[in-house]
């Protein structure tokens, strides 16, 4: 597994430097978008390696090396956790300026970091099992779907926030107004209302434990799929 980690780390080294520079630029120029985007991209770097592995045929070549299928899958998840940790550390350093200058509260600061890291975990956690079981071809379709869903979610969230600011309403009420389909006493709407009305510490706790459970499930699913895959 050490060899695989070495290979993947050398593959992400240059993009890691580029996104770190972008993140620092975001801090210097006071552009939070740069910070969040770079952090998200660092978290998603392990995904970038999968198509390259498929194109170069490393996917099958690595099976000729003394590493088990368990090791191959686990290595990608370790890389994912490593990138998430790097992303969290860099983002905390980068956003420290906003915190120290009083432009951001501690809870907002923490929320930004958690959100960016969750994005970095969420996409690989869904993408990896598909890739490990069916290969990069099908994985790519899932990846595109995820990116589109992510964009829709972010747009939706922005709409909710803007509406809340405009009407000075509570976020749960705004949610019902913006997404009428989610109105009513359904499980989804109750969960979303809970999340929107929760304080930042609750959101952080839910996000972190959710991410951990998702990672674990995704890893198990990837192991199951990759053990059945044939080359």
């Amino acid at each position: 597994m050490k060899g695989l980690l070495c290979k993947d780390l050398s593959g992400i080294f240059v993009p890691l430097l580029v996104f770190t520079a972008m993140l620092l630029a975001g801090t210097a120029l006071k552009i939070p978008y740069f910070l969040a985007f770079s952090a998200l991209m660092i978290g998603m770097l392990p995904i970038d390696g999968m198509p390259k592995d498929a194109v170069s045929r490393w996917e099958s070549y690595q099976l000729t090396m003394p590493v088990s299928r368990f090791g191959i899958v686990t290595e990608k998840y370790l890389l994912m956790l490593f990138c998430t940790a790097v992303s969290a550390v860099l983002l905390s350093i980068g956003m420290l300026r906003f915190l120290l200058q009083g432009e951001m509260s501690v809870s907002d600061y923490t929320l930004w970091i958690v959100r960016a890291c969750m994005g970095g975990i969420l996409i690989p956690a869904v993408y990896f099992p598909v890739c490990f079981r069916f290969g990069y071809g099908k994985g790519k379709a899932v990846y595109i779907l995820l990116i589109v869903s992510f964009a829709v979610l972010i747009t939706g969230e922005l709409a909710v926030t803007e509406a809340a600011e405009a009407h000075g309403l509570l976020s749960a009420k705004v949610l019902h107004g913006c997404f009428p389909l989610l109105a009513g006493n359904t499980a989804v709407s109750r969960l979303l209302c809970m999340l929107l009305d929760a304080d930042s510490s609750q959101i952080i706790a839910v996000s972190v434990s959710g991410a951990l459970i998702l990672t674990l499930l995704s890893w198990l699913l990837s192991l199951w799929g990759f053990r059945r895959r044939e080359f």
Binding site: K7, S10, W58, M65
Partner: peptide, 28 residues
């Protein structure tokens, strides 16, 4: 076992010293 497949699937952006490092960490 030493294996050579019809297409040698090594990472395309790496150079020999980097590839050697991977192999050094992989083979006992």
């Amino acid at each position: 076992t030493g294996v050579v497949l019809d297409e040698v699937g090594l990472p395309e952006n790496l150079r020999i010293p980097q590839i050697e490092k991977i192999m050094k960490y992989s083979f006992r």
